[in-house]
Design a protein around this nucleic acid. Structure first.
Length: 536
RNA sequence: GCCCCUGUAGCUCAGCGGAUAGAGCGUCGCCCUCCGGAGGCGAAAGCGCAGGUUCGAGUCCUGCCAGGGGCACCA
């Protein structure tokens, strides 16, 4: 780390000499190009009136007068890159840092500086079982929250419960029909769960009461399902409570004060076209009921203006795309700076099973039930699969590849690395070998390419966490975890740790390297919400 | 018609504007007197099409083609 800082300082020195805008210090894709590389010469050559290679050459000349710690050489390459080659010592220092900071302290880049951010996700209506799309986007939201929390943000996870309105009435109607042994009316909920619930219902023959009763039951089941994949919330926020509190009227009044409200056809309208929406929106219908948007605006007013979140990230399914423009317009109208509300849209997910499309379940009615998938492939596979592709990708997944513990199972590959790490620990105990204190271990004995590769991977984790947070892309953690597992398997294959003919000093250094790998895996899997079993 | 997302290897997906585009599966080879071969090593194979910006484009911009999702006083 201190080495990296020294290199950055060298780069800063250059910034003073040459005005530069987009100077990067980065890890080259190919190791032949060194450990670090900067494009400073290419970016600045034009303004400096020279060519990149010539500038790079003089830069290297300056640097070579006094090389920073751990820098073995600096050279010009390609179109004008300045490449730094480091000695292995910087990796040994990095290893010591991982071990020193441990699972709690390592890879906690403070990019949030305590920013209060709310992540709202899933928020599926309690009118039926949660489906796979919710599980996929939910895994994203949960992992994003974890990544943000690890990178210096104060995070709150929230589920907005749509426990009022027309859909709940429809649920009540459907439940009562089944309760009487009748068919569900057109447009109602026909899934088997309604029949199951109806059998237990012993309340009054009242649509509103029946609807609330059923919604509460269904919400309990949703919670149980999410709990089984480790998705938890800090807050379950009731839509009914917003409407009952008078917040909707207050919000409309706020908009009215800005001249954005008008009455027409007996309805109350929001002039959202003033703020980029495609048409104006109704907030209160002729019968006096608030629309969904009215409630949603009151809800977002509560998030920003009452509870004081600096930033709110809403994770919706792509089928809610149509809501975004009016929500954004409304939030801006309420005086919230654009940018403090981010909406992430998760594209649709489809499942196949050995090439055959998975059919929608009878139980859920019109979608693939998340519970069924979790029971099939397990919570860990459900989560890691969800986090292997980006939110923007309309992904297709094959359940057959992850159903059993098999070679082609990506979850298994990663967890196997952890099991092997634990196995090394068990074997060490068996052989009566224990780790000597780190201070007495010579980490510089780690020189095998496999060892160095593993160290490089571990050293990148803080940067990966930071990137994942900034880009709102927890999949970057998934990619890293798989790479770490790959590096570990390679190391494990080629570098015996406890074999009889291994120098005890080397064995000690390797044991500590294994411990660092354990720390890295634990952090990475923890961010993904995937368990790290010690045996398979 | 308008808006959003996507098009990367036979398949499923990764790829902060950088150098030779990666992984898993599938296909074809190789490695067990070794700590768990549930591993490792290697080969063949790819950026939808056409322009543009840039020293440099899979990545940014425009157009076209193809697929998915939206366009409510429902959520």
């Amino acid at each position: 780390m201190s080495t990296a800082m020294a290199v950055v300082a060298a780069e800063d020195g250059l910034d003073l000499a040459v005005p530069a805008a987009s100077v990067h210090l980065e890890r080259p894709a190919s190791r032949e190009h060194g450990d670090w590389s900067t494009n400073v010469a290419m970016v600045t050559a034009k303004k400096a009136g020279t060519n990149p290679r010539a500038l790079a050459t003089s830069v290297v000349g300056v640097l070579e007068r006094d090389l920073p710690d751990h820098v073995a050489s600096v050279e010009v390459a390609g179109p004008g890159f300045v490449n730094f080659r480091l000695d292995d010592g910087w990796l040994h220092d990095a290893l010591a840092a991982v071990l020193d900071q441990g699972e709690e302290g390592y890879a906690r880049p403070d990019i949030g500086h305590g920013e209060k951010v709310q992540v709202e996700f899933i928020s599926a209506n309690p009118t039926g079982p949660i489906h796979v799309g919710n599980g996929w986007w939910g895994s994203y939201g949960d992992a994003l929250a974890r990544v943000l929390a690890r990178s210096g943000h104060v995070v709150s996870r929230e589920y907005y419960v749509n426990d009022t309105g027309g859909q709940i009435r429809t649920l009540g109607t459907s439940l009562l029909a089944r309760h009487r042994g009748e068919e569900v009316p057109e447009g109602g909920y026909r899934g088997e769960y309604v029949t199951e619930l109806a059998a237990d219902y012993d309340g009054p023959d009242d649509v509103a009461v029946a609807g609330r009763w059923a919604a509460a039951r269904i919400l309990d089941r949703i919670k149980a399902t999410l709990d089984s994949v480790g998705i938890v919330f800090d807050e379950w926020y009731s839509q009914a409570s917003i409407e009952e509190s008078g917040a909707v009227d207050e919000t409309i009044a706020l908009l009215d004060a800005k001249g954005l409200i008008f009455e027409e056809d007996g309805k109350t309208w929001f002039r959202s076209t003033e703020l980029g929406d495609t048409r104006d929106r109704v907030l209160r219908k002729e019968n006096g009921d608030a629309t969904y948007l009215a409630g949603d605006l009151a809800y977002h007013r509560d998030k920003f203006l009452v509870r004081g979140f600096d930033r709110v990230i809403d994770v919706f399914g792509a089928d809610h795309h149509g809501q975004v423009a009016s929500l954004m317009a409304g939030v801006e109208a309420l005086g919230v700076e654009p940018g403090r509300l981010e909406v992430k849209l998760g594209q649709m997910v489809s499942l196949v099973d050995g090439g055959e499309a998975v059919k929608m379940g009878k139980r859920a009615g019109n979608a693939i039930d998340l519970d069924t998938v979790i029971n099939d492939i397990g919570p860990d596979a459900t989560r890691i699969l969800s986090l292997m592709s980006t939110l923007d990708q309309a992904a297709t997944f094959d359940l057959a590849t992850v159903r059993e513990q098999s070679v082609e199972n990506p979850v298994f590959y990663v967890q196997m690395a952890n099991a092997r790490i634990a196995g090394v620990g068990r074997k060490a105990v068996e052989r009566g070998i224990s780790r000597t204190p780190l201070a007495a271990v010579d980490l510089s004995l780690l020189t095998h390419p496999r060892e160095l590769e593993l160290l490089r991977c571990l050293e990148e984790l803080p940067e990966v966490v930071a990137d994942a947070a900034v880009d709102r892309a927890p999949t970057k953690v998934t990619t890293w975890v798989r790479r770490l597992a790959s590096c570990f398997h390679g190391f494990y294959h080629d570098c015996p740790i406890l074999a009889d003919d291994v120098d005890p000093a080397v064995a000690q250094a390797r044991l500590w390297l294994v411990e660092a790998a354990r720390i890295g895996l634990a952090i990475g899997l923890g961010l993904l919400g995937v368990s790290a079993p010690e045996a398979m």
